[in-house]
Design a protein around this nucleic acid. Structure first.
Lengths: 202, 202, 202, 202
DNA sequence: AATGAATGAGATTTCATTCAT
DNA sequence: CATGAATGAAATCTCATTCAT
């Protein structure tokens, strides 16, 4: 048992990491405080020194993911977008997303599986996360529609919704499953489907 | 309290209905046997006469949904498909799905929110459900590809995955939210996006 | 399920027999009303038509044993006793007792294992049973002491107590165990010990 | 309620003692976990911190008795035995046993009343205890028979069985009853009977 | 008289949280 | 800061008994 007085932030992170691993493995419901402190190799009381309870450490995990995602969104938003639809560029874009999920498997597993079902608070947090991403997409699509790159009949809100669903599905069924899919293939297929759907009428 | 002895199947259904309502309202985690028996207006012991526990009644609910869905899939599969891509027909098809979800709101809420997060058993059941639907979609797409109606570069498995994600997203974010969306608009948008993505190269 | 309206006494006996079998097999504690009615092939409600509850059917079983035992005691008491200590006669006497236990194995199992431990009422019933037998023994010993057949220093009450213990032990460890002992050997040994004690022949 | 953290073994013993008292008073069946924790002045959860359930604490009590008894047997076995049958010595021996039971009244009450009737596991434990004692007796008798101190026609196994029964009977009916008997008288009577049997002096 | 679904009191058990050390 | 024994509210579950049919 870690009897050393660690730096406050380090100990907190140690608990967060342990909790993320356990939540990913067993799910929120089946995870007990006991599991977390065992995984973190920390005493029961220590846990409550850093987090008020189980819900709160779960929320903290979501928040952490939220920050990572916000970072990604900001990075992508700050990138310029080519005036024309660039297939390779689009593919790269999608891959960035998929790789993000693949990199944070445990985190994604926790979030995507349960975030909405545990608690109204989580649901709220999750919805805001989801809105942020969708608003970004909607904005992009609007701009591209105005510059004539994308078909105008497309409703950006519907498209954002569909896209979110596709990613959610891809994450849940491919990234979370034990058989890791080829992200490139996934991205290629997505681009192919989307490209011909979003191009202006000919 | 209903002291009257009901037909075994009727009482079972009464419990299933009550449980579905409560699960939809409070979520699996927050629902107690007490909530269920209160909703069903039945004694504690009666519950255990019909189900061994909370997990089992939840599984039974999933199974029920599974049966309904299987019925829908079978109905749709037995329908002929026009030789050409018929926009109106396709739209109708999508609407059928959306209406199915809308009709079974409580059931869908329970399933889509939690089926994967509660228990490995539930996850398994859910995966089989998901496979059933995707296999149906894959089969359809293959047939249409062979008859030249759909573009051949499209990988049916990827398309099924994407489609499932779109529906999942639509169900979660529109049907389950309090602001009921216009299903027609949703269907129209879907057809529009898909049509031009799946049409053979021009 | 026995739907036929049986004679009241027959049905009662059917239940008693079934209960005795189950109690002997599983013990009072582990036996449920369900076990009894299953064994008797009778509906739940029928049981309560004949007995007020589980305790009462157990008491009825003890009472039945009590009657059988009383019968045995009366038969033995009505027998004359030889003026001198007749080894063969004594052996026969003991065998009669042992055979009685062997004949009513299930009943004995139930009584000897649990009669004292379940309920004050049972304990009381058991004590009265025990007193009956011991009083019979004490009476016999007193008579024989007066006629000089038995040693006068022997306290009849102590002897009755010891004898009861020996029989109890023999019943519990030999008759109730799966390896049925030779009753003749048991009786022979008992007579030998009682007649002469453990000291070598003089 | 004792909020003080005790040494693990102390708290365990506290629970065992409380449970023994309650079991002795009310019997296994009538005793609830609630009774035990009330008697021990400990919270519900604390009980489950030390024992998995009611059965297990009962088993632990039997085990404790087993250890005490083993100690007694070992003490007695290590004693030398006089070459000739020493009446006073024998009497002392028997008194040691009786005093042991009298000293551990509660424990004996629990064990002798119920050990065999609660659970197959208990029965097993009890049988092993019984075998230990009987094997000790058998060994003693064999040795004494070889040195000609005891009559050779006596079967040591039968004698051990009878002796166990006598003690069991004495314990159950005298020590467990409210009217405490005179242990000296009991021992005297036992020695008298064993030494010479029931036949008048020659 | 017979049935068996329904009952609910009371038992067991869990586990997030507290707090004396 | 760290610890982990102790807590107890709240959950699950059992089963002897009732009662409408």
């Amino acid at each position: 048992m870690a009897r050393t007085a660690l730096e406050k932030e380090t100990r907190r992170q140690q608990l967060l990491d342990a909790a993320t691993r356990v939540f990913a493995r067993k799910g929120y419901l089946e995870t007990s405080i006991d599991d977390i402190i065992t995984e973190a190799d920390v005493a029961r009381g220590t846990f409550y020194l850093y987090f008020p309870g189980k819900k709160e450490i779960f929320l903290a995990i979501i928040d952490h993911y939220f920050e990572l995602l916000t970072g990604l969104v900001n990075r992508l938003m700050s990138q310029e977008w080519p005036a024309r639809l660039d297939r390779a560029r689009l593919r790269e874009h999608v891959l960035t997303w998929l790789r993000f999920f693949a990199q944070h498997r445990d985190l994604a597993k926790v979030i995507y599986r349960e975030a909405t079902s545990i608690d109204p608070q989580f649901e709220d947090r999750w919805n805001r996360l989801s809105e942020t991403v969708k608003n970004f997409l909607i904005e992009r699509v609007r701009t591209l529609q105005q510059s004539g790159v994308l078909r105008k009949t497309l409703d950006p809100r519907a498209w954002a919704l569909f896209t979110e669903g596709i990613f959610h599905g891809a994450v849940c069924h491919y990234i979370l499953q034990s058989d890791r899919p080829d992200l490139n293939w996934l991205a290629e297929q997505w681009v192919d489907l989307m490209l011909w759907g979003i191009t202006p009428e000919r």
